[in-house]
């Protein structure tokens, strides 16, 4: 028996609520595939992963076949990986503030809060010449290089993209799931299409082109 067959057999032979996790999983999967709304897709992805994660201990308790070690090893992996992945954004934030010159950028914070729907979102500028933008939790970081490179409309497109990441981060561990359950999900594409909707496709494309031109050699 392969690992999957074994796990499958165990779930099927289990009593009580063993059919519930697969049911919720499939339901969530269909939400991911069929939902039009971006945030609903993210929600579907989140519950899909949550079910997988939560049913692992249950699987462990009902499993009787000889492939139990697979589940055990996976649980050990989760035990180490979850605290690390949950702490990673905080640690990275500490690192950034310790080793880089960073200042608040309030000029665009109103816009960010509007499009992210989070009135506690903050914007920071990192004093770095390479153009970069990223989100940690509900805060957006852009570098001096990016600020200099973009026109106001292009900057808004970048911020709208990051704002989607803020929305998505409201689901706990959403990013970590890609490393916990290995189910891929295209956050970047959703963030881009959200930004397109809000700031317009041309602005986003121009912003993207400027960045890739900056990084291309010549």
């Amino acid at each position: 028996m392969t690992n999957l067959d074994c796990i499958f057999a165990c779930v099927m032979s289990g009593k009580y609520l063993s059919y519930l996790p697969p049911f919720v999983f499939l339901l969530s999967l269909s939400v991911v595939l069929l939902a039009k709304d971006h945030l609903k897709k993210v929600a579907g992805y989140w519950s899909m992963n949550m079910v997988l994660l939560l049913s692992t201990p249950y699987l462990h308790s009902i499993m009787k076949c000889d492939m139990l070690w697979v589940v055990k090893t996976y649980m050990m992996y989760l035990l180490f990986a979850i605290p690390l992945l949950v702490m990673a954004p905080f640690l990275y934030k500490l690192y950034l503030f310790k080793f880089h010159k960073i200042e608040r950028f309030t000029a665009m914070e109103g816009y960010l809060r509007k499009v992210s729907g989070s009135d506690k979102s903050r914007m920071y500028i990192i004093e770095m010449a390479l153009p970069k933008a990223f989100t940690l939790g509900r805060d957006v970081f852009i570098t001096a290089g990016l600020l200099e490179l973009m026109s106001e409309r292009e900057l808004k497109a970048v911020i709208a993209h990051e704002a989607f990441h803020i929305k998505q981060n409201r689901f706990p561990m959403i990013y970590a799931f890609r490393l916990l359950t290995f189910i891929p999900f295209q956050f970047e594409r959703l963030a881009d299409s959200y930004a397109e909707k809000i700031a317009g496709k041309e602005s986003l494309i121009r912003a993207r082109n400027k960045i890739s031109r900056f990084y291309s050699i010549s």
């Binding site: 010449a129 390479l130 153009p131 001096a144 290089g145 031109r213 900056f214």
Partner: peptide, 21 residues
Amino acid sequence: VSLSSVAVTIDRLCKHGYVSR
């Protein structure tokens, strides 16, 4: 010299206190 090379280098020069931004 490419923009990205200049950017990386200028960041290093800033960090080491040769250049101010």
